[in-house]
Design a protein around this nucleic acid. Sequence first.
RNA 1: GGCUGGGUGGCAGAGAGGAUAUGCAGCGGACUGCAACUCCGUGUACACCGGUUCGAAUCCGGUCUCAGCCUCCA
Length: 469
Amino acid sequence: MQLNIHNTFTGKKERFIPRDPERITLYACGPTVYNYVHIGNGRPAVVFDVLFRLLGAMYPNVAYARNITDIDDKINAAAEDAEDRNAAIRKLSDYYSEAYSTDVAALGTLVPTFEPRATEHVQEIIELIAILIDRGHAYAAEGHVLFNVPSFAEYGSLSNRSLEDMLDGARVEVAPYKKDAKDFVLWKPSSNDIPGWDSPWGRGRPGWHIECSAMIHKHLGPSIDIHGGGSDLIFPHHENELAQGRCAYENESFANYWMHNGMLTLGNEKMSKSLGNIETIRDLLRDYQGETLRYALLTGKYRSPLSWSRELVDQARSGLDRLYQAMLDSNSKADLTTSLDYSKVKIQDVPQAVAKALADDLNTPQALAAMHEMASQINKSDKPEDTAKLRKDLLTSAWLLGLLTHSPVSWFQGDMGKVDEKAIQNLIDERDQARENKDWQRADDIRNELLELNIELEDSRGGTRWKRQ
RNA sequence: GGCUGGGUGGCAGAGAGGAUAUGCAGCGGACUGCAACUCCGUGUACACCGGUUCGAAUCCGGUCUCAGCCUCCA
């Protein structure tokens, strides 16, 4: 199976050739933690999780790092009024960092190999800055350390912009200590009430981009296979990371493939914290299962913008229900197998249609289409051996997408909120009795009564089943 | 203004020179006591205008238009 991925660096879809097939290295940018994350933040988590799963099925060893940026002026600002500001900042970033992991886990993402945090890598950051200064790519000035952009001739190659272009309408702050307007901060001084670390340049904290370069180097190496993140990070974040990495470690490519997911839009506008048009994962989880949200995120190709709406999620729910329904209807042996039981699946054991779709730059909509095809076949199949094969195909496919992680019964009956299963079963029994007596009135009354409680009945061959609506 | 990437049926969304994408919703039918589930059938879809071609939604040119980045953002 040949994996092809779209590389932002070249602007082309390219054949993926690992640096070392024995150890694939993948890094994805996580959030800055000062708030609950919104579903837009969930997209890269899910997209690169699918990639992690796919690579895991193709190669023996995949090292995947997804960072948390917990040093940032926005975090500091969020704790502005606290009495002990330092403590408040720490508490805040710990809390939201934990919330992020929880929310993103609800979307069915596997735990990455590494989840590095900036605060735990300040030493590495300082070392990296020192190297950059040594090599003449950075300089200290007034308690700051700045990366000197003109010192790196290839600056702009990732985001495909020239230094001249950037000057037009440039909105960068031109501080007096900058040698060049485009120079960006690697280190800046901290007052005592906000987090700071001792360094050769005084007590301070790292700038925004340097933490990623340092954490990549520490956990994955001077060069990695794939670096991912949202398309809004291409410039300046990734451009700067690239510059830092390349300048610090000569003859290293830093990242061979850059992948960027498109933005979620809400009402024809990018979902973003600053615009305020967001839906937090936490809020959505009140109304939907995490897996439904995940399915919704996967209905579009990761590179394209995806217009988010409750309608989209409702459609996702219906589509996912269909897959579970096929699993439910075809389950004659009370089989409790879910996709989780196929976590060790190899790519050659995944149905071709799905493997090919995913290997083609993560074409998840096409993979989902192939899965629906399997569901249709399951529904039509009357040979037990065919059904068993198709069920397995569907579940192995689902593993790569991170779907069908529940048993069909628990999916439909759910554990969201309390229901009295016993009472439901009693009513079903009573209705069955009524039906036997051809007391259709009573039978329908019971069905309607349950419907009031959002319980839907299905009279299948194997008896009456109930589902939450 | 510069750089990206788009405009596909009621909705979401693949595909990419000649096939039915797929799902949701709708309609008709089968199944059912009636439903639900499932199955079968069903839609003059490819922004606009030119061009290339035997043939274009798919290639080329132009027009209009939308989004993203150029500032913190996934």
